[in-house]
Computed example of a mutant assay.
Amino acid sequence: MPWSPHAALLRDLVLGVLGTAAFLIDLGADLWAAGQYVLSGRYLWAALVLALLGLASVAMQLFSWVWLRADPADLHAPQPPGRCLALLHLLQLGYLYRCVQGLRQGLLVWQQEVPSDFDMAYADFLSLDISMLRLFETFLETTPQLTLVLAIILQSGQVEYYQWVSICTSFLGISWALLDYHRALRICLPSKALLRLGSSVIYFLWNLLLLWPRVLVVALFSALFPRYVALHFLGLWLVLLFWVWLQGTDFMPDPCSEWLYRATVATILYFSWFNVAEGHTRGRATIHLMFLLSDSILMVVTWVTHSPWLPSGVLLQMLLPVGGVCFLLGLVLRLVYYCWLHPSCRCEPDRVDGTRDLCSLEWRQLPQNRRMAQLAQNFFPKTRDEAALPWKGEVNGVL
């Protein structure tokens, strides 16, 4: 049964609050862990945690700032002066500012008895950018942090309470970001049905189960060969960056910032699948899956032939079946999702009542997040929205 407009708006507002809270909790857990490492004299571990946190934050601020500069000047009115916005991003507060802005717009729309199309479209515009930034932060900071924590635990043979907090928040944050990003893609294309509760749960689980073995493999490699993990990442990252470049991405407003996007996507592909271009998505996803699986198998062979024991004395072969079972279960759930639970398996629409007509002039005059819409077109190349999209073939921006 479709959601009523106000119920759907309230749901989106609650999800926005939870997403912002999850980001703050994960940030607090990382800072807490870094402080504990300093207090215990493990300065290298603390430096690595803070370095990953800092690099991811800088990348997020750059994305946010470039997007704001590329948007029409009157789109986000009222806004703080340009210098204030620049200062917010320089102080690494640009993402939080966007979250506050999105929550304020969502609350404004929810409070309206009959929400205006413009306010609803602008709320979607903001939430789509926030979703994309959250995904970038997840794979630039949360996933590497999780890998680092697991490597530290495997090497030391003990788990501190603050490390448990970091592991739990990281896993939930990663899966949440993947699910939220997939929902955001469907918001861009109104003819695409939204995910139901059961579909969302299965989508959440199979992403978690497929990501966990990859993170475990890299963490084990880091624990056994800490001097070579950076070389391994750099080698694969360059290959993946070349692959992304070959696909001719056109996401950012200028060539310089496009390379920032490509570098970020290559980092995501090191851990998980991410589609960046139109074409046969299933074929590219299969190639990527086989590539990561082959790389993981090579690392497993390296462990077994060089050191069957972890530095902490744990038998390495005890951990391998865990990753294998999770990987197979993730594949099964992924198959179940796409065969029976995917929204395309349903004939009836699952949209909120009053969805705007894509072909209407009024719809074309509303704020459109072309950045995310282009990614949605890449992810759903056969959608019937394609012919109706007024920006198809134009430069990224807003009407």
Rank of each mutant, 00 (worst) to 15 (best):
D129Q: 09
Q163K: 04
G248E: 08
N207Y: 12
T169G: 03
L140V: 02
L293P: 00
V109S: 05
L246K: 13
M60A: 14
L128H: 13
N396D: 12
F171K: 09
V276G: 10
V336P: 05
P308W: 06
S200W: 07
L68E: 15
D12F: 06
L91E: 10
T20A: 14
R183D: 10
H306R: 09
G393P: 13
L234Y: 07
S307K: 11
L375Q: 11
Q155L: 00
L9Y: 04
Q111P: 01
I268M: 01
Q101R: 15
Y228S: 14
G19E: 01
G41R: 11
V114D: 10
A86E: 12
Y337R: 01
V165L: 14
W65M: 09
W237E: 09
C99F: 03
D12I: 03
V314P: 00
C256D: 07
Y338V: 14
V322F: 10
L93H: 08
V109K: 08
E278G: 14
F63S: 03
D129L: 01
L178I: 14
I153P: 06
T249V: 12
A230N: 05
V239M: 05
I153R: 01
S294L: 09
L209H: 07
V149H: 09
F271L: 03
T20I: 02
G102Q: 12
V229L: 08
S360T: 08
S175G: 02
G28K: 05
D74E: 15
A46C: 05
V276C: 14
S199W: 00
H288E: 06
R334H: 14
L211F: 07
P226C: 04
L331E: 13
